[in-house]
Design a protein around this nucleic acid. Structure first.
Length: 346
DNA sequence: GTCCTGGGCT
DNA sequence: AGCCCCGGAC
C-alpha cells in the first residue's frame, strides 16, 4: 500500500490499445539477460544511448512494455537481485536516497504506545546509567566496560557485575591493567561469555592506558580497534559515553524490525538488507537524527515482546496495518511441504 | 542433550 | 557466511 507497485493491476492500463499505452522504462540491471518476462508482462530490450550506460559491471537497457501491467512489474524487478534500479521517463521509481517510508511517524508512535504499556526485559540500556555518579573520564570508562559486558546478558546481571568491579576498584584502565585476569573473570561472572570478555577487558584497559591516558577513544574508528568492540557497541559508546551521535546503534532487533517494516533496503532495490551495518546506513538516510538514539531501546523492547524473531505477535501489534510483513509466517527452516510453492513466488 | 541467543571475528 | 563464546530454556 505504501508503494505504487504493491497492488497488482493486471493489464488495466496497458491493455487498452496498442501503441497508446506504450511505456518506455529503463532498467539498470546486472550483466546477464537482456529480456525480461514475467507471468503478466513482457519487456523487450533495446540498447540505450551511450551516456546512460552504467559502470562496467552494470548494463543498461531500455525496455518497451509489450503487454501486462507496468505497476506490478516494478515490484517484481526491484525484488530481483539482478536489477539495480528502475527508471521511467528519466524518473527513478525506487527510493535510493533517503525518502522516508510512508506512515513511519504513525508506526513509531504506535510502537511507543505499545512499549509504554508492556514491559520488556530491557527497559534501560545497561550502560546508560553505568556510573553516572562518577567523574567524566571514569564514567566513560564505565560506559565502555558496561557495553562490553551487556551483550547477551540480562541488564541486572550486567549491573551487578559493574557494581562488583566498582567495589573492588576495578572500573578504571590502570587498575584493570594491573589486575589478574582470573580476578576480573570472577567478578564479572555470570555475564555471558565472561572468559572472553575478561580477556578483552584486560586488553582494552591496556590500550586505553597506553594510548589514551586511561580514557576511552573518542572516535568511532578508534573504538572499533578495541577487541570485542564492533559497530553496534562503538555507536552505543559514542552515543552514551561521548554524547556524540555518529550513527544509529543497530542490533539484530533493529535490523530485523526495520526490514519487516520495509524501512530499509539494499540501495536501489527492494531487497532486504543483509547485515546490521547495511541496515544502519539505509536507516540513517531518512530517519531524523533526533530519533537515532531512542530508536534502539524502542525497537529492542518491541522486538522482545511483540515483533519477536520467530512467530511475531502480529495479532497484538497495533501497527500491523502499516507493516508489509504482518501475518506472514517467517520461519527459519521452511517445512518441506510448503517450500516448493513458496519459493516459486519470488 | 540440543537448540537458541547476540554480537564480534575470520 | 559460518564460527565462537556461556548459559539457559526446553
Amino acid at each position: 500500500m505504501r508503494n505504487p507497485a504493491s497492488e497488482p493491476n493486471p493489464g488495466s492500463e496497458s491493455s487498452n490499445g496498442g501503441s497508446a499505452s506504450e511505456l518506455r522504462v529503463f532498467v539498470r540491471k546486472k550483466r546477464g539477460r537482456k529480456t525480461i518476462e514475467t507471468q503478466e508482462t513482457k519487456y523487450e530490450a533495446e540498447p540505450l544511448d551511450q551516456k546512460l550506460r552504467g559502470p562496467p559491471e552494470i548494463e543498461e537497457f531500455g525496455y518497451k512494455q509489450v503487454n501486462g501491467s507496468f505497476q506490478s512489474t516494478v515490484e517484481t524487478f526491484l525484488s530481483k537481485p539482478r536489477f539495480e534500479s528502475f527508471i521511467c521517463d528519466g524518473v527513478p521509481l525506487n527510493i535510493p536516497t533517503g525518502e522516508p517510508p510512508p506512515n513511519w511517524e504513525k508506526v513509531l508512535e504506535g510502537i511507543r504506545k505499545m512499549r509504554s504499556t508492556e514491559d520488556a526485559p530491557v527497559d534501560t540500556m545497561g550502560c546508560e546509567k553505568a556510573g553516572n555518579s562518577l567523574p567524566p573520564k571514569e564514567r566513560r570508562f564505565a560506559v565502555l566496560v558496561s557495553s562490553l559486558l551487556s551483550s547477551q546478558t540480562k541488564d541486572n546481571v550486567t549491573h551487578g557485575a559493574i557494581q562488583r568491579l566498582l567495589q573492588n576498584g576495578l572500573l578504571a584502565a590502570d587498575t584493570i591493567d594491573k589486575a589478574d585476569e582470573a580476578t576480573i573473570k570472577g567478578l564479572i561472572y555470570p555475564v555471558g561469555f565472561y572468559t572472553r570478555k575478561a580477556a578483552n577487558m584486560k586488553k582494552i584497559a591496556n590500550i586505553c592506558l597506553m594510548k589514551y591516558d586511561g580514557d576511552i577513544p573518542s572516535s568511532l574508528e578508534e573504538l572499533l580497534l578495541l577487541p570485542g568492540i564492533g559497530p553496534k557497541m562503538a555507536h552505543l559508546v559514542m552515543n552514551v559515553g561521548w554524547n556524540n551521535v555518529q550513527g544509529i546503534c543497530v542490533d539484530t532487533h533493529v535490523h530485523r524490525i526495520c526490514n519487516r517494516l520495509g524501512w530499509v533496503s539494499k540501495s536501489c532495490t527492494k531487497q532486504k538488507t543483509s547485515t546490521p551495518e547495511e541496515t544502519r546506513e539505509a536507516l540513517q538516510l531518512w530517519l531524523p537524527k533526533e530519533e537515532w538514539v531512542p530508536i534502539n531501546p524502542l525497537l529492542v523492547g518491541f522486538g522482545q515482546t511483540v515483533c519477536t524473531p520467530l512467530r511475531p505477535n502480529c495479532g497484538m501489534c497495533s501497527v500491523s496495518d502499516f507493516c508489509p510483513s504482518a501475518f506472514r509466517e517467517i520461519s527459519r527452516s521452511p517445512s518441506k511441504s510448503k517450500r516448493s510453492s513458496l519459493s516459486k513466488k519470488l
